[in-house]
Nucleic acid binder design. Structure first.
Lengths: 146, 146
DNA sequence: ATACCTGCAAATGTTTTGCAATGAT
DNA sequence: ATCATTGCAAAACATTTGCAGGTAT
């Protein structure tokens, strides 16, 4: 599964004449897709550095923008000031439950909600490109300690 | 309507022994509640400066945090890097349609969606505190020019 | 040789904080 | 007098950009 996305990224890069496939980009993409999503750039940078300590964060930022431009990752910002990227493309659309206690992020899919969203947009004459639904609260584990 | 929120804010401030009501806070709260929501701190700062040019942005940031702590404003971040505040309290919960063309923000309320969200959270064992639903697309006006 | 990439450092943009001066109680 | 508040500047924070050196074509 992660292999497919890495291949798609490499394919995307090689199709553009002014882009090159490099060891750094490959490593970053590989690390990103091999880990389950919602990684901040800093987290990804640290993971990447375990394999190649010389890679700077600017390179990670640039690579993630490339991957996002290729449509293979989606930038998201949950409450904290960080941008987190989420793998896209293979997985279908989903929304998020975010725990305010431990920060755990759970994904869910709910078709009736999607359907109602489309209805709302149509009613207001909007043409929807994208949407974002986030539920904030306490997960089962954190409810005990609260 | 905005009067009620200003009063509630003043009441909140006066109840805490270590907080004082000041002309700056009053002006900032007044300006914020008198304008329709979704203002960034910088926008608010500019509006406030029209009435009192000496007010610095740190004061506006601090005042908005106070107002938010009082539960009378909610910080939101739509795609751009800015935090926007939205008046809360008097108005009931609502969600947002955001135009990617002109940036216009339309509010809407949809009870069935709220209901489904609660169901999803319950199914995952989460206790929901808050949620955020944003639909991004083109508003009627911007569809013509696209 | 050309042109893209990298890594570093510096710049950017937003938000926070330290501090001396001010103002209220 | 005390103590919160202000405004300014500096700091902190995530992210972007400029640039010299390196590397692939």
């Amino acid at each position: 599964m992660s292999r497919e996305l890495i291949d798609r990224f490499n394919q995307h890069v090689s199709q553009l004449r002014n882009l090159r496939q490099t060891a750094q980009r490959d490593l970053i993409a590989r690390t990103f897709f091999e880990n389950t999503g919602h990684m901040s750039v800093e987290e990804l940078h640290q993971k990447v550095r375990q394999k190649d300590p010389k890679i700077g964060f600017a390179t990670v930022y640039r690579a993630m923008r490339l991957i996002a431009d290729a449509g293979l990752a989606i930038p998201r910002s949950f409450g904290d000031g960080l941008t987190r990227y989420e793998a896209a493309g293979a997985k279908r659309h989903h929304d998020h439950l975010i725990c305010k206690g431990c920060g755990r992020i759970t994904e869910f899919v709910n078709d009736p909600i999607e359907e109602l969203q489309t209805q709302v947009a149509t009613k207001h004459g909007y043409k929807i490109l994208d949407h974002k639904l986030e539920l904030y609260g306490f997960c089962p584990d954190c409810q005990e300690t609260q």
